[in-house]
Amino acid sequence: MSIDPRDGGGPERAEVRHDTPPERSPAAVLPRHGSGLVARILTVVYALVVTPIATGLLAYGGSALGNYAMSRGYIDASLAQLLTGTAGARVIIGVGLGILLLASVVATGVVSSAGLLAVGGLGLISAVISAVPGLALQIYQQLSPTVPTEVLQGISYGLPLVLHPLLGGLGLALVIARRRPAPHLVSSLLGLLLVPAGLLIAALMLFQGHAAGLNVALMTFSTHIHPLNAVLVVLGALLLYLAAAASRWSPYALVIPAIVLLLASVGSLLFTIDLIPPAVWNSQAGQAAMTLLFVGGGFAAAAVMLVHTAVLAIVRARSRRRLRVSAGTAA
C-alpha cells in the first residue's frame, strides 16, 4: 500500500512512494549541466597528449611551407610542385595531420569541455614562456639535441601562444552554453562585431609582445624581462581567451574570422611577399602575423573555429532539449 500525503502522511512522506514514475522523481527535476567524471578524465588526458603533438606536427610541416612562402618570389615553383616534391610529404603529414588532431580535440567538446579547459592551462604556460624570452632560449638550448629544430621553432612562430589560449577559451564557451544555451538576440548580433574585433586586438598584442621580446633576447642574449612586452603577451593571451569564450553569446561570430584567416593563408601561399604592404613588414607584429600564416597557423586557427561552431551548435541543441524535458517533468 502506498503512502499518500492526503491520508495524513505529510508531504515529506510522499517521497517514499514506490509507484512514482522515474521521470516524476525529485532527482529527475534537476537538470544535469555537466559531463560525467569518466568523460572529463578521458577528454583531459586526450587533449593534454594530443595538443602538444599536433602543435609539434604543425610546426614541423609548417616550416617547409614557410620556407616556400618566403622564397615564392625568387623560385619558379608552384604550390602543387611543392606538395608533390620531396617536402610535400612533410607538409601534408605535418600540417594536415596537425590540423586534424587539433580539430579532434575541439570535437571532444561535444562530450565534455574539460579537455579544452585543460589546454587553456597549456596556453598559460605558453604565455609565461613568451613573456620571459630568456626562458624560451633556455628551453630551446636544452631540447635542441633531442627535438627536431623545426618543432622547437614552433615556439618562435607563436603557434602554441595563439592556439592554446584559443582552445581554452572555446572550452569555457561550451561550459557556459551547457548551462545557458539560448543567447539573447542582441548579444548574438553584437558578438558578430565584438568577437572578431577582440580576437584581432588580442592577436596584435600577442604578436607585438612576443616578437619584440624574442628579438631583444636574440640580439642581446639577455635574460631580462621587458615589462611592456611581458604585459602585452599576458594581456593578449587573456583577451584571446575571453574573446573565444564570448562565442557562447554569439554562436556564429567565429565564422567570419575563420573565413578571413583561410583567405589570408591561401593568399600568402599563392602570391609573392612583394604584394604584402610594406607597413606589415615594418611592424614586428606584422612580421609575426605573416610568419604564423606562412607556417599554417592560419589554417589551424580557422579549422578550430569552424569545428567549434559546429560543436557549439550540438551542445546548445542538447542543452535546450534537456531543459525542455526538465521543465515538462517539473510541471
Rank of each mutant, 00 (worst) to 15 (best):
L254Y: 07
L261M: 11
S265T: 14
A264T: 13
A258H: 03
Q287Y: 14
Y252P: 00
V266E: 03
L292H: 11
Q284G: 15
I256A: 11
I259P: 03
Q284E: 15
A285M: 12
V266M: 11
P277V: 00
N282E: 09
M290Q: 14
V266K: 03
A264V: 08
T272R: 02
A244Y: 04
S283N: 12
A288D: 03
P251A: 03
L254M: 06
W281R: 00
A264K: 06
L254P: 07
A264W: 04
P257R: 04
W281S: 12
A244R: 09
A246I: 00
S250P: 07
S247C: 07
A243K: 02
G296M: 04
G297D: 05
N282A: 07
L262N: 11
L292K: 08
L263S: 13
A243T: 02
A246C: 05
M290H: 09
W281F: 15
L263C: 08
F294P: 08
V255A: 09
V260D: 07
A279M: 00
A289G: 10
Q287D: 14
V266F: 05
D274L: 12
F271L: 14
F271E: 04
A264L: 04
L293M: 09
A285P: 15
R248F: 08
V295W: 06
R248A: 12
L269N: 05
G296N: 13
L292T: 04
V295G: 11
A288K: 15
A246W: 04
G286P: 11
S283E: 08
V260K: 04
V266P: 07
S283V: 10
W281H: 05
L254H: 08
S250K: 02
L262H: 12
V266A: 10
G298D: 05
Q287E: 13
L242S: 01
A245Y: 01
V266T: 07
G296W: 13
Q287F: 10
A243H: 04
V260C: 10
I259T: 09
L275R: 06
S283D: 07
P277L: 01
W249H: 05
